[in-house]
Amino acid sequence: MQNNKIHSLLVIIILFLAWEISFHLLNLKWYLLPPPSMILVSILNNAHLLFLSLLTTLKIAIVALILSVIVSTSFSIVFYFSKFIERSLTPITVILQVTPIIAIAPLISIWVDSSEIATLICAFLVAFFPLLANTIAGFKSTEKKHLELLRLYGANKYQILRFVVIPNALPYFLSGLKISSGLALIGAIVGEFVIGPISGHSGLAYRIIESGYQLDIPKMFGAVFLISLSGIMLFNLVRLISYLILRKWHSSYQQVD
């Protein structure tokens, strides 16, 4: 495990070095492809601005993720208790999923005054569906033998939900959360691109547009790096949560001697 991390870190360092060296050797134009050192300097120069934008984007992604967790879990539980509601609502969730967010974003920005909330809605719409689909799949994968066991002891539907259905769905839910954590960030960026700068302090997407206007390519790269970085952070956060919840019993965390 530790070895693997060192390996991938080495690969990244070598890539950046190769980039830096080839920039100088091949005499590349800095305004087309700036070298990593220049990007780093630009990030440091614009640290305050970029950091606040990072916070704005991260806040939207995280709030969207939390909303998706709440909504998809409640939907799954409602669907568990009522097949009728499930049958009626499933098509709507699918329609929302297959419609590209870029297509609805302008509408949302017309309906909602605050650009922050409009972007949040975009991020939520993108992040919500994979989580819902995974959680529902988890609910449905409850093993028959476990249900029989609970019924044998006279458990009611609510007890079956608590003792068997929810714990059984957790691994599915958490792998959905991994997908959604990336998508929430994408939604937050795409939303801001289409809707425009977020009121208060604009997010990283607007920093990219702004750098384009100013032809400040190093800053643009800086913003892109920060987006990737926050994506990695979000993903690892979910992975940590997943590890803490599942490590004791789930086979994906089997200790190897």
Partner: peptide, 14 residues
Amino acid sequence: SFVFQEPNLLPWMN
């Protein structure tokens, strides 16, 4: 009480 063919334990409980 019923003893199943396989242990049928809930993996998330000790």
